[in-house]
Design a protein around this nucleic acid. Structure first.
Lengths: 123, 123
DNA sequence: AAGTCATATTGATGTCTGTCGATATGGTAG
DNA sequence: CTACCATATCGACAGACATCAATATGACTT
């Protein structure tokens, strides 16, 4: 999943010699679809607020019971959004008693961030 | 627009002392909406393929006339997608004779990439 | 086993969006 | 000015989506 080509329009660092995959053919149908799924999960204000609420909570984790009020949405709506974020691989869900706790999937998020990182900074 | 908090769940580098904005309250309604707009623009396979086609073209620019066929969409559809990408600030449009040329808005894209960069890599 | 509480699912609804054919716009060339 | 070509806009339509009230599920407590 190399989207880095987005960002290297003026990158003087990489060449087809050192980073052939960045000069490869554009995204095929499959890759574009997969990537779009990730961006779709991020393309809603309520979901972004949920993510940022969780990320800025103590221990970077939060109980679903504390999320509905801050985002001003009903409990079913919040539950639905959290499910989508889990499905997209952005959040991990853990059951603790009758509460559902959510945290960022660090590996997955790091991978996305990496794919979106300008070519220079990880070469 | 500091989304970096997404990525710093385990970041040992930044503290509230050095990077106060990363520990700020979660995204407000306005910020979440703005960010979502950007992700929406990226949340479609056809638009991602257009972006990657342009980015991988010679000089990192492309004529609209060369984009419809590769993505397998009609001319109006491609025109519509390109407009959306311009509106989102991801592409710049330039008229050359009767042709429309598009290139990535490097500043804007860099800003987005920066916002999405893990905390460690630009500190 | 029954009650209670947190969460998930269902069903419905209004809105947004990707797509195309048809048509309008605008630039170039003759 | 007219013809032509590339691009944009319009109108329509099907599918996706965010949202909520109502209800189901599932877990703990007593």
């Amino acid at each position: 999943m190399y989207v880095n080509m987005f960002f290297m329009t003026e990158a003087p660092i990489c060449t087809p010699d050192c980073c052939p995959e960045m000069f490869a053919a554009p995204l095929d149908d499959q890759a574009a679809g997969d990537l779009a799924e990730i961006f779709k999960a991020l393309a809603d204000p309520t979901r972004l607020r949920l993510i940022s609420l969780i990320a800025s909570s103590p221990n970077a984790e939060a109980c679903a019971c504390d999320l509905a009020a801050p985002v001003g949405r009903s409990q079913p709506t919040v539950s639905h959004h959290l499910s989508q974020l889990v499905a997209a691989g952005l959040l991990e869900r853990e059951q603790r008693g009758k509460w559902a706790w959510f945290r960022l999937d660090d590996d997955r998020v790091a991978a996305i961030a990496d794919a979106l990182t300008p070519a220079g900074s990880n070469a």
